[in-house]
Amino acid sequence: MPDSSPRPHREPLARLPQALAQVNALVLGKSHTVRLGFACLLAGGHLLLEDIPGVGKTTLAHALAATCGLGFQRVQFTSDLTPTDIIGVGIYEHEQRQFKFHPGPLFTELLLADEINRGTPKVQSALLEAMAEGQVSVEGETRALPSVFTVIATQNPLDLAGTFPLPDSQLDRFLMRLSLGYPDAAAERALLTGSERRALLRETTAVLDAPDLLALRERVRAVSTSPAVLDYLQALLAASRDHADIRAGLSPRAGLALLAAARAWALLGGRTYVMPEDVQAVFIAVAAHRLQPRRNTERAALASVLLAEVSVRA
């Protein structure tokens, strides 16, 4: 090995495996989901974690933030949360005789929006607007959010009492929707016998930092896509639009999201070009929550059907 010193590699791309390994050590037995989460961050998208409580959604968000060296804020959404609670508020300062803006938790690099569906539509849309624009307007003044600003939102799909489910138009703002699910037996045993997660998180050191993440996003955008891959991607989009079980297919924005995620996935695989396999790997995470089934069909199942039906022309 040319460089065996523990000093972090200068090239952020070379540190990605280490970052992945670190998150996997915190969230046990979920390497595929972790990889998808990373892909989402690298593609510059926001992540929606949808699962029952206690499977490690928050841990994953924490682990990602800590490993990527991002400033982290957590907001627990409740029905009495107001937009100013997350955006911030201007308070009159007597000494200076003027209003001074006190930024809310939104002004961070990684925001964990816990149980986002418990917030009112008003506060949901305030957050989603910030996610879409990368900036917020407070009292007539536009304030930019940090350039790596990313939201990881969680919601519980089962306990729906007193919630405001996100409308489809807002689900579209999330690049990926992931579920963690129960860990397998071995992972669960390791979890039961290992140290407490919270303590481990505190000991975690950053492998990357915000500039690294920005540089990696630049690398993702440089991943090349051949006409053959674009053909396949468009075939998937087209199939989603005239499938009998789908009321509304994938939008052009969904197509862009799919492409960005596939690029990130290819980069995580150490390649500078996209293969159909990359598109397939991210397809369910990117497309499932954007499909509107005609009947009472599981969205993820619909996406799997599309993957199985659309042939990959070589």
Binding site: M275, P276, E277, Q280, A308, E309, V310, S311, V312, A314
Partner: peptide
């Protein structure tokens, strides 16, 4: 593409069929 199609047909004749959603390399 034609070359791959030919190869695919020859493999299919020997019972190695490609699933619809299966990528070439896969």
């Amino acid at each position: 593409g034609r070359g791959f199609d030919r190869l695919e047909r020859r493999l299919a004749r020997r019972g190695h069929r490609r699933q619809p959603g299966e990528a070439p390399a896969q």
